[in-house]
């Protein structure tokens, strides 16, 4: 296929522009996942381990937010970061930081919801033993997160997949500025609009390949980790 050939030419050609775009995509999406994990994991754990009035509603809303439309998130963050918006003085619009913020907002519910599910399931298993061992609340969270780390890794990958593949938020808050905020997905959108469909699809194949590589790395991490436990 012509598109696969284009993808290969892009890789073999070692085009520095392409490399920069690829790198920006990775940096933005991985940073967004890191930020979202920092907030979402503890939030998910907290939600898993507490009971209060309206908890069911919070869980439903959180699960629902996993389907947040990227364009809506992009627009919200745009209005927030625009010079006329409440955070306009930071001057973050049309920068990679803005894209990281927007993607973090986008994937936060995914990571928090999956973390909640993982930790709640594990907690159901561990509950009696922990009570019998007199495990305090802080130790409890730490132990559940540590023991659930491989399942939580899957939550991170789900977040990364969504962040790396989306175009809606980064287009709006990043502006698709050549050499500065152009990512793989906005470049694909641009080439499509220029009618260069083989190049667009070639870039698309490359993006999918990169997402696969990240997943393979996580898989390696997981299997090495699990092998270590039985060694």
């Amino acid at each position: 296929m012509a598109e696969t050939a284009t993808a290969w030419q892009l890789i073999i050609g070692g085009d520095p522009t392409l490399f920069a775009i690829l790198r920006l995509s990775l940096v933005v999406s991985l940073s967004a996942v890191a930020v979202a994990a920092l907030v979402g994991m503890p939030f998910g754990a907290l939600l898993a381990l507490t009971s209060f009035r309206g908890r069911g509603a919070v869980v439903v809303v959180l699960n629902g937010l996993m389907g947040l439309p990227p364009v809506v998130v992009g627009l919200g963050v745009y209005l927030l970061l625009s010079r006329s918006g409440p955070l306009g003085d930071l001057g973050l619009l049309y920068t990679p930081s803005a894209m990281i913020i927007a993607q973090a907002v986008l994937v936060l519910p995914i990571i928090a919801a999956l973390a909640r599910q993982t930790i709640e399931d594990l907690w159901r298993d561990y509950r009696d033993e922990f009570v019998a061992m007199g495990v305090g609340p802080a130790e409890r969270v730490a132990a559940l997160v540590w023991d659930g780390r491989y399942s939580l890794l899957t939550a991170l990958l789900a977040g990364f997949g969504r962040a790396a593949a989306e175009v809606g938020t980064v287009m709006i808050v990043g502006g698709n500025i050549d050499g500065f905020t152009r990512t793989m997905t906005t470049a694909i959108a641009l080439e499509t609009s220029k009618g260069d469909l083989p190049l667009a699809l070639g870039l698309g194949i490359l993006l999918v390949a990169v997402i696969l590589v990240v997943n393979a790395a996580a898989w390696t991490l997981r299997s090495v980790g699990e092998a270590g436990r039985t060694a």
Partner: peptide, 17 residues
């Protein structure tokens, strides 16, 4: 709270460690 008492369950749950 349990200090010097302990419990062994019919099906003990192993920590994933």
């Amino acid at each position: 709270p349990p200090v010097r008492r302990a419990f062994v369950f019919q099906r003990p749950v192993m920590l994933r460690r």
